[in-house]
């Protein structure tokens, strides 16, 4: 049986700089996985290559054994770190769009979650705050029945109540037949919901493991391990 995600020796450069520098890892089904790395580690580039939005220089990305392409995109729901529904007038227009584009879109679920957050269908998208836009986007994209959800920094710049809602939404969407890959550089917020972590640095995998095993092995929180592994010496000083 194929792994859900198989990434092998993936490389991609921008203007001579290697954003992905031989990245290799696999993920199984039924897991919530943290993709941890500092800004510039290659998290967003990886997501964009995984969804075919960016080409790769070399290496391979397979989803359920199939090379990235239209077939694999049917199974992936990508939640980018920027708002993608800005071109729609009202929330209802974005819902219609999702229904038309994605046969796996669960309209009932989206409506239920939007109502829970006190949004109305006729609300104008331009009138929403940044945090509200992030909520609407997450609800719409997590209402697909995908095999793989890619969430790019979903908790960046959201207030605590929204953070709790986002975590609950992730937990309620997640199941044994799908996997959720969440990129972040703030580990503390999502530490408790992760099965596994993939720590990346300079475009490569630095450390991968199950969270409870890592906690036991290091006797530390994932957040502490992450900080220790990624401590940079800034400005050339050797002092702590």
């Amino acid at each position: 049986m194929n792994e859900l995600v198989e990434i092998k020796d993936l490389k991609r450069s921008f203007a001579g700089k290697r954003a992905l520098n031989g990245m290799t890892f696999s993920l199984g089904t039924g897991k919530i996985v943290g993709l941890l790395g500092e800004n510039g580690a290659g998290k967003t580039t990886l997501f964009r290559v995984m969804t075919g939005l960016l080409t790769r220089d070399s290496g391979s990305v397979r989803i359920e054994g199939i090379e990235v392409g239209p077939k694999t995109n049917e199974r992936i729901s990508y939640v980018p770190d920027h708002f993608v529904f800005g071109g729609f007038r009202r929330i209802s227009n974005a819902v219609t769009y999702m229904k038309m584009c994605f046969p796996d879109f669960d309209e009932k679920k989206a409506e239920m979650l939007l109502a829970k957050l006190h949004f109305t269908q006729d609300q104008k998208i331009a009138s929403l705050s940044k945090g509200q836009k992030a909520q609407v986007q997450l609800v719409l994209l997590m209402s697909r029945k995908a095999k793989l959800y890619l969430l790019d920094e979903p908790l960046a710049a959201v207030d605590p109540a929204t953070r709790e809602f986002i975590i609950k939404t992730i937990l309620s969407t997640f199941g044994e037949d799908n996997t959720v890959l969440i990129s972040t550089h703030v580990v503390m917020d999502i530490e408790l919901i992760l099965d596994e972590v993939v720590m990346i640095k300079d475009g490569r995998v630095h450390l991968q493991g199950e969270t409870d095993e890592l906690r036991e092995k290091y006797g530390k929180t994932i957040n502490e391990i992450f900080k220790d592994e990624f401590r940079y010496v800034e400005g050339g000083t050797e002092n702590e």
Binding site: I32, L171, S172, F174, I193, D195
Partner: peptide, 14 residues
């Protein structure tokens, strides 16, 4: 229980 505790269902299962 996983949702109430805010943890991963796999962890709760274990």
């Amino acid at each position: 229980m996983a949702e109430e505790a805010g943890v991963n269902p796999n962890t709760m299962q274990r």
